[in-house]
Amino acid sequence: MVVPVVENLTRRVGRFMHDDDLRVELQSLLKGGLETKIEPRAWDQAKVDFILSRLREIDAGDYENKLVEAGFTLYPWGEGDDAQSCETCMYYVVHRRFCELPELMMPVEADWSCTLWRI
């Protein structure tokens, strides 16, 4: 019999292991030259809504297309005080290194960025 707490922990560790593997995969896609829609930035609500609607049409497991539509980069967008990185984004879960935007829900790195950044 598995004690619930242990079972829960096992599941959590399993999830993070999966996150790590997937993160490496996504990173190699971007390093390999995957062209993503970096511009135009989602500066206003209409553009945000447009990108979100495109993301909702993508299968939850189709991470490659999610990277493309959200305009992911392996580096922060902008410079200095205006730099936009996952690290400061509201959807970024620091300890899991994960994007919790419901339309994305995928592992990322702190210094990545996408057009849906919001603070």
């Binding site: 609500q45 400061t88 603070i119």
Partner: peptide, 30 residues
């Protein structure tokens, strides 16, 4: 839906300015 301009909320907590908000957010998340 929080209304934003360039990713920053249009309306910030009373008395907080944009620069302070961005700095605080970076520090708080870290």
């Amino acid at each position: 839906k929080t209304q934003t301009v360039m990713g920053v909320p249009k309306e910030l907590p009373e008395g907080v300015d944009k620069t302070g908000y961005i700095k605080l957010t970076g520090a708080a998340k870290a």
